[in-house]
Design a protein around this nucleic acid. Structure first.
Lengths: 227, 227
DNA sequence: TAGATTGTTAATCGATTAACAATC
DNA sequence: TAGATTGTTAATCGATTAACAATC
């Protein structure tokens, strides 16, 4: 097990610099299940038990966790609450990434209202839209500002995350500017394929349309094969 | 190349029954790019050119497409518009899967308004919520009905897709009932991990919270590595 | 101590990439 | 015909699973 000693405290560190995207994408799911287990009073769990609940293999769970450190104990398993907290820390839910939202239409407003940003490591500090749509509105206590103030706002506040709830073309146009202004991560709800053009920026595309078409394929497939 | 002859018409068929989920998930992206290319007047394209635009390898594109049939022509490439239509047909955008939405709160309403169901193979025929929230509302011309009418509605109309915009527990409770009523595909916006408990049902989970936490991890990673 | 379960190495499986013969 | 590019087979790479020694 690798660790750094910081004063009296032992801090777990990733064993290797590179963690595959497959592993990272599974972490929030572990976090959800462990949270529920912890809440329902489960104190310890073995990789085998957890695998049974999550429909994974015990091997995979142990491999995944060991990317970040040895959180278990031989012969015992894992302490549910400790592991929950460790994964939360790994995911960075204790950070407060300064976040702005661009586009406060129907979708943007819903996202802003719906998401639990605080408990996921984000701090929504600004919402922007065209002046006529901003118009003194505020969502979740955050004032909706004229998009023209974006530049000065970013230079002053230095947000690192941008949530894009704007159309295709607007996203394509705005992205390079936002990166220039210091944005390091995008949560992109537009159809535009943000990842194609930039690197050294974290991008999560929520392509609802793609998801729906995948569902269409698979449902049709199931209906066909049942015949 | 495998094909069936139906009268004069040659219909492309999948070469093997099993198409991996990785391939299926890439199809909507091909569809988007080919649609844009077609719209901007591009007539033919080689796998190499398309790979350049989409940041894929030409090999992968050819492999992916050849799961479904030989749509190209040696020495020439692919006809953009034909390929676009083929992929649309494969995805089933020409079908009209009868669809219901359960939960017409903020998120449900936005999804119902926002998505282009018709052009993706879906026909939204019913929206359900608790009586006091239904209350004569209609979204997109679809009447919001009392959840108590769900049973009789499904037995009569036989929808095959359910969009779940309800909380965790409600989703877990309702899922088996919906499957019993003939639902074959779920578009699930709740935190509940639908896939774990059922098979022979197509499930697309939109776990926005998971996506956000992944973004947190990756953004923090980028910020750290820049230091 | 004996039993259980981890952390880790080795084996397997699947997906991506490379290569090339077929052919338009 | 010659050049280009596919469809497809073979090679590589990465991710998952199995096995087992270490150890609590």
């Amino acid at each position: 097990m690798l660790y750094y000693c910081v004063g009296e405290m032992v801090v777990h560190m990733p064993k290797s610099d590179y963690i595959s995207i497959s592993v990272i994408k599974r972490l929030p799911r572990y976090y959800r299940y462990l949270g529920e287990l912890s809440k329902s009073g489960v104190y310890r769990i073995s990789s085998r038990e957890l695998a049974g609940i999550m429909k994974l293999t015990a091997s995979q769970i142990r491999q995944d966790l060991n990317c970040f450190g040895g959180f278990g104990q031989q012969g015992y398993g894992y302490n549910v609450n400790d592991l929950y907290n460790e994964i939360g820390r790994i995911l960075g839910i204790d950070t407060e990434l300064k976040t702005i939202m661009v586009g406060a239409g129907n979708l943007g407003q819903t996202i802003a209202l719906h998401m639990d940003f605080e408990n996921k490591g984000f701090d929504l500090i600004g919402i922007f839209d065209r002046a006529e749509k901003a118009n003194g509105r505020s969502i979740r206590g955050v004032h909706v500002q004229d998009i023209n103030t974006l530049d000065s706002f970013c230079k002053e506040q230095k947000p690192v995350i941008a949530i894009l709830c704007i159309p295709n073309d607007a996203a394509r146009e705005l992205a390079p500017k936002l990166i220039e202004l210091g944005i390091k991560g995008f949560w992109n709800f537009s159809h535009y394929d943000l990842g194609v053009d930039y690197e050294n920026v974290a991008i999560e595309n929520i392509h609802l349309g793609d998801s729906l078409m995948t569902l269409s394929y698979r449902t049709n497939d199931i209906i066909k094969s049942a015949k």
